[in-house]
Simulated assay, not measured.
Amino acid sequence: MHDNLDTYEWPVCRSCPRQLRQDELGRQACRCCQDRADEALRQLPGPDGLYAQLATRLTPGRGGDGPVVAVSRTPPLPLRLEPLSLMARGGVITVLQSWLIDWHELLGWRHPRWQGDLQQQLDDVVHRLRVNLEWAASSHPAFDAFLIELTTQVRQCERQITGERKERPIAVACPCGATLRITVSTPGVRCYGCSTQYARAEVFDLPLATRNAA
């Protein structure tokens, strides 16, 4: 019995390196990471949310490096491709809807249906994800990947709205030999070579990749 206790490792959250509390045992993610996901989701919907604000950043400012200028919701061409790609199919809405489909399939529910314009669909999918967030953080085996993808989308929206320059990527080396590209705000990453999931603190402990590998 004593030997078993010596080798026992207390379960940790799959989304961060924090050990699970007693009342969190059996969960995929701790409640702090669940709250992080909820906070990210709450930033997106509504007339004042990040998604709606992207429409005010579709036209360039004056000059290549000038400040972003707010415009009407139907701006003339040319359009800025970065916020447009986040707003269009394949952007934020598609990412969130793909996760909701995945959750429905795991729960054995009917395929979700989308109604309304893009803003209404965004608001709807965010609502549904938040309703089922407790289940996902407790039971979904890929909640860590969901949190990374969600926070990445939110961060990209914030950068387009504030005009913040894109973060410079950093190349780090996984022990398996793969080179991973991260930024200072990377919440975590999964290695494409060995499928190891690194939390934020862990990925910054990895050594820098050599110039040839990068």
Rank of each mutant, 00 (worst) to 15 (best):
108 G>C: 07
123 D>K: 00
139 S>F: 11
163 G>C: 08
104 H>Y: 14
130 R>H: 05
129 L>S: 10
137 A>V: 14
147 L>R: 13
130 R>L: 04
155 R>Y: 05
118 L>Y: 00
152 T>A: 04
170 I>T: 08
127 H>L: 06
165 R>F: 02
110 R>W: 07
145 A>L: 06
133 L>E: 07
101 I>Y: 06
138 S>K: 15
110 R>F: 08
127 H>F: 03
156 Q>G: 01
166 K>H: 08
109 W>H: 11
153 Q>K: 15
168 R>L: 01
132 N>Q: 05
170 I>K: 04
160 Q>I: 02
153 Q>G: 09
144 D>E: 12
111 H>C: 02
139 S>P: 01
104 H>C: 15
167 E>M: 03
167 E>L: 12
144 D>W: 02
167 E>Y: 02
120 Q>R: 06
114 W>Y: 05
111 H>Q: 06
165 R>S: 13
135 W>N: 13
117 D>I: 03
106 L>P: 00
103 W>Y: 08
157 C>W: 05
111 H>P: 00
155 R>S: 13
127 H>T: 08
103 W>P: 00
167 E>V: 00
113 R>T: 14
129 L>P: 06
116 G>I: 01
104 H>I: 14
144 D>A: 14
116 G>M: 05
116 G>V: 03
115 Q>E: 14
140 H>V: 12
162 T>Q: 06
164 E>R: 13
146 F>A: 13
130 R>F: 00
167 E>K: 07
103 W>Q: 08
128 R>H: 11
117 D>E: 12
131 V>E: 07
129 L>Y: 09
101 I>Q: 09
133 L>H: 07
125 V>S: 07
102 D>V: 04
139 S>Q: 15
110 R>A: 15
115 Q>I: 10
112 P>H: 10
100 L>I: 09
159 R>K: 11
115 Q>V: 11
140 H>C: 10
160 Q>K: 02
141 P>K: 13
127 H>N: 03
143 F>C: 12
129 L>D: 10
152 T>R: 12
120 Q>V: 04
128 R>K: 10
114 W>V: 09
112 P>R: 11
171 A>V: 05
127 H>E: 07
163 G>S: 08
163 G>E: 08
113 R>G: 09
143 F>D: 12
141 P>H: 14
133 L>F: 07
120 Q>H: 04
168 R>H: 01
127 H>R: 09
162 T>I: 07
106 L>C: 05
120 Q>F: 00
154 V>C: 03
121 Q>H: 01
128 R>N: 09
159 R>M: 12
169 P>A: 01
165 R>M: 05
159 R>N: 05
151 T>S: 02
123 D>T: 02
107 L>S: 11
166 K>N: 03
149 E>T: 15
158 E>K: 08
149 E>V: 14
151 T>I: 02
156 Q>T: 01
155 R>G: 10
128 R>Y: 05
160 Q>S: 10
153 Q>D: 09
158 E>D: 05
141 P>M: 13
115 Q>H: 12
135 W>R: 15
114 W>F: 07
137 A>G: 15
150 L>R: 01
109 W>V: 07
136 A>F: 04
141 P>C: 13
170 I>F: 01
161 I>E: 03
101 I>A: 09
150 L>S: 02
138 S>R: 15
110 R>S: 14
156 Q>M: 10
102 D>N: 08
141 P>Q: 13
164 E>L: 11
